[in-house]
Structures are given as C-alpha cells and as structure tokens.
C-alpha cells in the first residue's frame, strides 16, 4: 500500500460511457433489426420479439433518436481515451503477444489481471471500437447518400453501404456475445464496472 487514496479500476468517465453505450447499442441494434426486416438483405428476418419498435416508423424514430446518444457518448469516450492516456492500455498488441495470450485463453489459463488488458482483450476492444466507427460512418452514408455523397462514394455507394452497415453490426453483436460470455465466466469483473472498484 503506497498511498491512502486507492485508484479506481475503472474511472468514472469509463463507467458512465460504458453503460450509456450499452443502452444506446442495444436500442440501435434492436431498432436496426426492425428496419432491416422492412427490406431484408439476406434470406432471413429478425423475430419481432427481439426487435425494438413495433413497426418501421417507430423503429426508424428510435434509431435516429438513439444515434445521437451513441455518437455523442462515443465522442466523449474517444476524447477521454486520448486525453487521459487510457489508450495506452488499449494499444493494439503485436501478433506474437496475441498468439501467446490466445493459446492461454483457449486453454482457460489466461490470467485476468484486474485493471490491465491482456493481448486478447486489446484485440477485441480495438476491433469493436473499429466496428463502432464503421457502423456510424456507414449509417450516415445510408441516411444521407445525397448530402454526404463523398462518404457514400467512399463506402461504395448506397447499396454497398447497407451491407457494410449490416456486417459492422454483426461484428458488434459477435463481440457482445463473447463479452457477455466472459463476464458470465468471470462474474467478479462486473461490480467494478458499476462501482469503480478499488485495487
């Protein structure tokens, strides 16, 4: 024990943005699935029990309302991550470190160091942050293919943007599945994301 003031595992900004983002992303995915159902890209639709907004108009209204929370909260997170030095904990690891930690993780021997991210975590977090940026940019390209035409062109046009948006969503959903499974396996990581925790 060096000082009397113990450091929080998760700083307040991180915790607040995490839970606001959790709410926003669930709303965006749920309403997005309902919007998808109006004109499916693939040979399936999402069951109505897991979509948000009971018809297309309501789903779009939720989607275009919650996008502001998702983007504003995301910007606060990115600015804070850059300014506070938090990015150092997240910086993408080299392939060797990923390989070493991946082997440990798959054999359930990877140690969970509280407050520090191992190579597999860094890879997943960087990946989902990238997917978040792509999902927002492709969403803007779908929303405003005329006014934001350079963005639309960059992403390959209106139709391609819809596929990009879908696959970025799928990547986020895949992350969430792993993320929630790991929390279920190591439940002690959940309370610090609420209380901050002390180490």
């Amino acid at each position: 024990m060096r000082g009397t003031k113990k450091q929080a595992i998760h700083p307040l900004v991180l915790r607040v943005t995490h839970w606001l983002n959790a709410f926003a992303i669930v709303m965006m995915i749920g309403s997005g699935w309902q919007i998808y159902n109006a004109s499916p890209l693939f040979n399936f639709t999402f069951p109505g029990t897991i979509t948000i907004g009971q018809w297309l108009g309501a789903a779009i209204a939720w989607h275009l309302a919650m996008m502001w929370l998702l983007v504003a909260n995301g910007l606060i997170y990115f600015v804070w991550t850059g300014a506070s030095g938090h990015w150092r904990k997240l910086a993408p690891p080299g392939p060797r470190a990923i390989w070493a930690d991946m082997k440990l993780a798959l054999s359930f021997r990877l140690k969970h160091d509280t407050g520090a991210y191992n190579a597999v975590q860094r890879l997943l977090y960087c990946g989902v942050l990238l997917a978040g940026v792509v999902v927002v940019l492709s969403g803007l390209a779908i929303w405003k293919p005329v006014q934001l035409w350079p963005l639309s062109d960059l992403l390959g046009g209106y139709i391609v943007s819809r596929y990009v948006h879908f696959f970025a969503m799928a990547a986020i959903v895949a992350f969430l599945a792993v993320h929630l499974m790991l929390v279920a396996l190591v439940p002690k990581v959940l309370p610090p994301m609420v209380t901050g925790g002390r180490q």
Partner: peptide, 25 residues
Amino acid sequence: NRRQLMLRAMALGLIPSLTGCDYED
C-alpha cells in the same frame, strides 16, 4: 447474486419492446 444482477441488466434492453411506446396510437 451477480448472475441475477447480470440477467436483469440484460433484460433492461428488452423493456422498450415490451412497453407500448411505439407510435402505436
């Protein structure tokens, strides 16, 4: 317990689809 807490947190996300807040009327 924590598992119940987590299930409740996940269920929070389902609430909007269960309530009638949908430009229904």
